[in-house]
Design a protein around this nucleic acid. Structure first.
Lengths: 191, 191
DNA sequence: GTCTATAAGGCGATAGAC
DNA sequence: GTCTATCGCCTTATAGAC
């Protein structure tokens, strides 16, 4: 893990992501970002080329981390249930490390310009891989025989919303959360 | 159920909700709404007072429907599991009837002005009622003993995201969906 | 009820001084 | 690297003709 001093560009991206989470990309102005940093809007352009570049930096790097995580899980040779537990852990880890970025990834991707097709491709491939794991689990009798579409929707929307919920619990233990989520998502809540 | 002819005001709200789902409240202009309706932006102001009024009309009416539904479920005297099934059905029903409005309810509530505190109040009370049902279920041994916060988060985020998913399945049967979701959310997917 | 014209201000981005 | 000043465009909303 690199631990170098945060560059001005990195600071802009960090501050912007936080504001994007609160109001959304379109409602945040370059003047808002600059004011939060204590400088003038024009000064931002010495470090970034455009507002769009900030959004791109936030979303694409995060989407690629999910793709890399799924690639590893796919090739792990584990059982379906263990692969699903690994996916849950992947989402808890990346969401807790990038709470603000996750908001843009979920809610502001439609404001991407040149990078939109690339983002859509990564997301589609991720969902295909996820569904493939579920279909194998059903085929080999590990999972109940319910439509894999509905299963994936249910699990993935919960995981994608983690960023909304993790910051609220200040005393949260991420291992506990991963364990509780695995139990609830895989085994249900009915005794 | 009223079946009167759609007024111009209702048309504006319907068209706006669809655009808000695609790009978010802040990124949709009055010109966008007007152009979709085939009129000029200035003409919209003969039917509504402001852009903010449109958002208010979309979000508050929907939030109040959820509150009314929860009130009925709370007083039903059913078991915890049956109350949860009724909540799932409530979300499937309201989401399928208001796909575009659900997007604003989830993503654009932070752009409410005067009505924001009222919206926050309705949402908090809904979540408190939901958690209360879960806590009773745990206390009486109907549900497994996992943190009710995590349970509620998991179920409620899935239900709140239904609007993203229902329109994709053109041939969907809402009773099937309710049944599948109940099975997955309550009993899990692990065989 | 819709139009044209316009007010009053905010937007992203650039030029050039320091 | 930050500033002031500014450009050209877009924003919500209003006034008043038809």
């Amino acid at each position: 893990m690199k631990n170098k001093i945060e560059s001005r560009k990195e600071e802009i991206i960090r501050v912007a992501a936080k504001l994007f989470k609160e109001k959304g990309y379109s409602a945040v102005t370059m003047r808002d970002i600059a004011k939060t940093m204590g400088i003038k809007a024009a000064s931002l352009y010495n470090h970034i080329n455009s507002k769009q570049d900030i959004l791109k930096a936030i979303i694409i790097s995060l989407a690629e981390k999910f793709t890399a995580g799924m690639l590893e899980i796919k090739g792990s040779g584990e059982s379906c249930i263990n692969k699903l537990k690994a996916i849950i852990k992947l989402h808890v880890t990346l969401s807790s490390q990038n709470i603000y970025g996750m908001a843009s990834l979920n809610n502001d991707w439609m404001h991407l310009e040149e990078q939109m097709p690339y983002y859509i491709k990564l997301r589609s491939e991720y969902e295909d891989d996820f569904k493939n794991i579920l279909e194998h689990g059903i085929g080999e009798g590990e999972l109940i025989n319910v439509k894999p579409d509905v299963m994936m929707f249910s699990i993935l929307t919960t995981l994608r919303s983690l960023y909304l919920w993790i910051p609220k619990k200040e005393d949260i233990d991420l291992n506990d959360l991963t364990e509780n989520l695995s139990q609830i998502l895989l085994d249900g809540i009915n005794k």
